[in-house]
Design a protein around this nucleic acid. Structure first.
Lengths: 165, 165
DNA sequence: AGGCTGGCTATCAACTAGGAAAGTCAGGTG
DNA sequence: CACCTGACTTTCCTAGTTGATAGCCAGCCT
């Protein structure tokens, strides 16, 4: 499989990628600790000590990452107060953070398949209710699955539907 | 959104994740340089100097990564020879490497939406032929889209379809 | 008031990622 | 044969990630 380039991109020797979104994303969330904290957040964790216990990452790093991810806008920091305790903060995923869902679970899916024993790793994603296995993959906005062979890359603003050949 | 845990996982306080596939995946491909090299590989690049030019990563790092990713089994190293040149090697994605497709393009999708200007970044994925926009997301193996709200996590071997309530 | 607890903060050291630049080496060219 | 080129390799250096350990401080408890 290799992707097809459409339009102005067709000749690969005439352009180079400057503003790569993949590179930018990696600079924001491209660390093990960020990913594990995000994993926990998807699992419903919101409090500092739960993050540290469940990820087994040191508290200094968790504190630094939560701050950083909050500044970037992946977490929303909300005060809460338990009876008899002072005010603390909970960290809730924002929409921007939730949108990382495919990234985090595509990593899990790949690790389950290729880095674990034959059992396929400890956890799996299923649909609630039916229990049907869930996969992270490509589909068109209208909901059809897309075979990886049939994918193409276009430049922004360089596509007006299929061209007559 | 936070995921539901099914079966033995239901009480979050009784278990801790040891063998996390996300952590394992990040240790293998969790660097900017690996991701950019994979990006180029999906774009069809196979040769050393094309990787260095198109990713703008130094040759030392590209060499180290290609070797490492080949050892891990993401690339297959094949000799080739151009007329008047000596034998060189091309790096082709294996199935294991190709399976990282959702990871790489989920990162691109997220970066396009959240880290670029209003234009949404330089490149987009479409279906070849129809030109319809493509998204990376969750669906059941039978092909239905799954709303992130309706996802659940189960432990391996701990699910036999929906239970009577 | 004084001690304790929990959520951070600060410091230090080990390790890794990455850029730059020079070195190596097979093999083709003059 | 000497030279050159392209594909790496090696070395050096800087910056960032991580773990470990210790410190800080608000506010509850006695």
């Amino acid at each position: 499989m290799s992707l097809t380039f459409e339009g102005v991109l067709a000749d690969r020797s005439t352009w180079r990628l400057d503003d790569c979104s993949i590179a930018k994303s990696m600079e924001v969330v491209g660390t093990r600790s960020s990913m594990l904290i995000l994993r926990e957040a998807f699992y419903g964790t919101t409090r500092f000590d739960d993050f540290t216990r469940r990820t087994r990452i040191g508290d200094a790093i968790v504190a630094a990452r939560l701050k950083e991810l909050t500044v970037i806008g992946l977490f929303d920091r909300r005060p809460y107060r338990e009876p008899g305790k002072r005010t603390r903060y909970e960290y809730h995923l924002t929409d921007k953070g939730r949108d990382l869902f495919p990234v985090v679970f595509a990593l899990m899916q790949w690790g389950n398949k290729h880095l674990q024993g034959d059992d396929g790793g400890p956890l799996r994603l299923v649909e609630q209710g039916t229990g049907e296995a869930v996969v992270i993959g490509a589909r068109t906005v209208s909901g059809r699955d897309v075979d990886p062979e049939d994918l193409a890359i276009v430049a922004h603003g360089d596509w007006a539907g299929p061209q007559p050949s």
